[in-house]
Computed example of a mutant assay.
Amino acid sequence: HVPSIWTAGVPFLLVPMHNIAAVRDMDFDAGLWLRTAPLVEGLLTAAYIYCRGGVNHAAKFHARMFSPDMGIAEDPATGSAAAALSGAIHHFDGLTDGHYPLLIEQGVEMERPSHIHLRMDIKDGEISRARIGGHAVRVASGTFEI
């Protein structure tokens, strides 16, 4: 894998790293990102940093997501980024026809570990279907009155 832009609606600059230690120890400079990140159709890309493997033995990928443009210092679970990652996985790994269930862990460094289930179906050498899922836990609630 090499750094590349992928989207499933929201553009991400996907940056592969060598291992979990490199992902864990990286410093993200939001100000620098806002000044230098690429634009896609006028939208600033968000950063999705990932590597193979995981803290959880079942995880195939370990990731972190940053989007200072959207006011997100770091996100513990990003479904749209996992969906974008499906394109990179298919492209760089050369997946053959079949069904690929993959677990992506995110939020570990924030102490809010999340498991995102990505399921990809490849048919005739193309992604015919990609689905994301997982479980959510309410961490806050509130009301808004006008």
Score class of each variant (00 low, 15 high):
H57I: 05
T143I: 09
W33H: 07
L95T: 09
V108H: 00
R138P: 08
R64M: 02
H1A: 13
G9Q: 09
D75N: 01
V108Y: 00
H91E: 14
S4Q: 12
R119D: 14
C51N: 03
D124F: 09
S114E: 01
R52E: 14
D97R: 08
D75W: 00
I132Q: 00
S114H: 01
T36E: 12
L13K: 11
C51Y: 03
D121Q: 12
I122A: 09
Y100M: 06
R64C: 05
S128Y: 10
I116W: 00
R64Q: 06
H1G: 15
A8W: 05
G42T: 08
R64V: 04
G107H: 01
P101I: 03
H18A: 14
R131V: 13
L32H: 10
D27M: 10
V139A: 03
R129S: 10
M110F: 00
L85P: 05
V23Y: 01
D124C: 07
T78W: 02
A22G: 03
D97Q: 05
A37D: 06
D97H: 11
H117L: 14
L32W: 12
F66L: 02
E109T: 13
D124R: 13
R129L: 14
V2Y: 13
I122M: 09
Q106H: 00
G107M: 06
G98T: 11
A59Y: 00
L14Q: 04
V15D: 00
Y100D: 06
I146Y: 08
A82K: 00
P16W: 08
H117D: 13
H117T: 14
A21P: 05
A136V: 09
E126A: 11
V10C: 04
A46Q: 14
V139C: 06
E109M: 06
R112W: 04
I72L: 12
V15S: 02
A58Y: 10
A47W: 05
A88N: 04
G71P: 12
D69F: 12
V55T: 10
G31C: 02
A8G: 13
